[in-house]
Amino acid sequence: MSAPVLRVEGLSKRFAAPGGGVIGAVNDVSFTLAAGETLGLVGESGSGKSTLGRCVLRLTAPSEGRVIFMGQDITSVPEARCRPLRANMQMVFQDPWAALNPRMTARDLIEEPLMLHTRLSRAERRDEATRLGLRVRLPSAMLDRYPSELSGGQQQRVCIARAIATKPALIVLDEPTSSLDLSVRAGILDLLAELKEETGAAMLFITHDLGTLRLMADRVMVMYLGRVVEQATAAEVFERPAHPYTQALMSAHLPADPAVPLARHVLRGEIPSPINLPPGCGFASRCPVAIPACRERLPPLEELAPGHRAACLRVADGGNRIPS
C-alpha cells in the first residue's frame, strides 16, 4: 500500500473546564488513512469525534501527539504557514447555512478557494466555478443565487464544490447529511460516492448515523468519551462488533423496516461528564458486562483479528458479548 495520506499518532486534546478541572475531549488516538479510503468516525455527542476532525485539520491545536499529513509533520507548523496546507485538506460541515457567507452568491463562494489557493485568472476562475457547479449538479443559473435562495441540499452542494475546488488530498466531512431530509440526503451521498471514486481523496467521514456509515465507510472507528473503543473494516464492525459499546450502538439503531427485529440491549444512563474522568474504561459506568477491573485499569486497544482492534478487558475472557 502507498504511504498514507494521513497518519495520526497518540493525539490528545484537553480543554480547561469552566470552574477548574480538565476535559479530555480526545485521548491518545492513533490511525492512518490512505488515498481513496473513507474512514468512518462514529460516536455520540461528546465522544470527541468533531474535535478529532478539527485537530487533524489544525483548526484546533492538539495538546499531545502528532499529525502527519502527506509525510509532513504538521502538528507544530505555525498558524501563518497553515494556509498552503489547507488547500490540500478541506472540510464540509453539518450546517451548510452556517458555513456559507450569506452575502456572497454561490458562484463567489465557489470561486473563493480558487482565489485563495490558485493563480487562476478571473476568467479561468469563472469557468472553473461553472464546471465545479455542474460537477455538484448545480446548474449555472443557480450559481447567481445567494445561500438564502437555495435549499439545504443545494447549499450543501455549494459547500462540497468549495471543498473539492482545490483538489484536496484529504476531506473531513463532519455530519454532512445530518441536517438534510431523506430524499435530499440520498442525492448528497450519491455525489460523495462519485467524488470519492473520481478524486481519490481520502475522506474522514464523521457521523452518528450507522446507516450512512455502512454506505460510505471502508473502515470504521468507534469513539466513546474521547477514546477509540473499536477499529475495523466496516463489514467487520457491522458483522462482529466486539466492544460492548459498539454492540449497544448497533442495537439502538432503528432500521426503517418493521420486518427486521431489533436486538435490544438498551443502555441505562447517558454519557458521563468528560470532566476529570475516572481511571479505567470510560464505558464501565454503563456497561452491562463490566467487572471491577474495568473501573481500575484502562483497557488497551488490542488486535483481535488482522485490522480489527477493540479496547475491552472482557474480550480476553470472552465476556464481551452483551446478553440479549
Binding site: 431523506l182 440520498a186 442525492g187 462519485e194 446507516g211 423496516d257 427486521v260
Partner: peptide, 14 residues
C-alpha cells in the same frame, strides 16, 4: 431513500 434500502448512484426522483 432510507440508509437500509438506499442504492447509491441509482436514479431517483428529484
Amino acid at each position: 431513500a432510507t440508509p437500509e434500502r438506499l442504492q447509491l448512484r441509482a436514479p431517483r426522483p428529484s
